[in-house]
Design a protein around this nucleic acid. Structure first.
Ligand code: MN
Ligand code: MN
Ligand code: ZN
Ligand code: ZN
Lengths: 142, 142
DNA sequence: GCACTATATGCAAACTAGTTGCGTTTGTCA
DNA sequence: TGACAAACGCAACTAGTTTGCATATAGTGC
């Protein structure tokens, strides 16, 4: 899902495409990195489209409600967002330089699903989502 | 590791055992639930040992530095702590009532380790830790 | 038991991420 | 081009957490 098709989609739903909205959609469709509200704010400043932080927060909330973004549970304290138009995946987080890399752990999803079924039987818990993040050090920060 | 042995350990390291410290150690050694600073604060009040929130935050930081507590990556925004004297495990989080249940997914650790090795080879990332949390609904909140 | 001293504590103030109310601007469409 | 709701900016607010500094207290030695 590229930026163009996202804005078209929103327009058909009757939503406006303001400059800020368009720019934020563009930011998320051109990276796979999970971004924070502050990341978005700073990127907009760099691109010469400064907006108020409230606008950024409200826009992230809006795009989340439209299922165009999804929250990523990384470190505690700061919400990260990434495009929802990505296959399910998990993350490697470098504890030194804080960079985040996506990892697509197909081989583990089966095990996770099996566990989810067992948990449902044993604990009566139905699982609708999971987060799996890896912490360590990237090649540079060894 | 029970509360008694923890305080003895701290004493040998030259740390004092204040009433608040003792009570907080007791709280964490008598539950497996991950607790927030506020949880601890309220529990201390209930037990008739009210302390300032700053004390709670400083004590959690202290016990974390002593490796007697560990942070748990749950929802963003609030840091949860649990006793470090527990086997490695993960959590089920009910999205309705917010209760947290521990799950010991031995069957999945192998898969996670295999993935960690693959990631090390492919991406040059060395993984030292991971977090895996499940989100869903408990038996009560279906 | 009493004094000493560093550690732990309380309080107030600051800080950060995020939220809310409200008046103003702007995108869309007639 | 004008109407009007959606989006925006601003300022004030909140919750969780941190910091500086003065006071209280646990542990040691007398
Ligand atoms: Mn997965
Ligand atoms: Mn594990
Ligand atoms: Zn790194
Ligand atoms: Zn529940």
């Amino acid at each position: 899902m590229n930026a163009q098709s996202v804005t078209t989609h929103l327009r058909t739903l009757g939503h406006r495409i303001s400059r800020a909205r368009e720019a934020i959609i563009e930011i998320f469709s051109s990276t796979t990195k999970p971004l924070t509200a502050i990341d978005v704010l700073l990127t907009l400043e760099k691109v010469g489209l400064p907006v108020n932080k409230t606008t950024v927060y409200r826009e992230l909330e809006f795009l989340l409600a439209q299922h165009l973004l999804q929250e990523v549970q990384i470190e505690s304290g700061i919400i990260h967002y990434e495009s929802a138009a990505q296959d399910h995946h998990h993350h490697l987080i470098c504890q030194t330089c804080k960079q985040i890399v996506a990892v697509d752990p197909k081989e583990i999803e089966q095990g996770i699903d099996k566990l989810a079924r067992r948990v449902r039987i044993n604990e009566g818990f139905t699982i609708s989502d999971h987060s799996l993040e890896f912490y360590g050090h990237c090649a540079h920060c060894q």
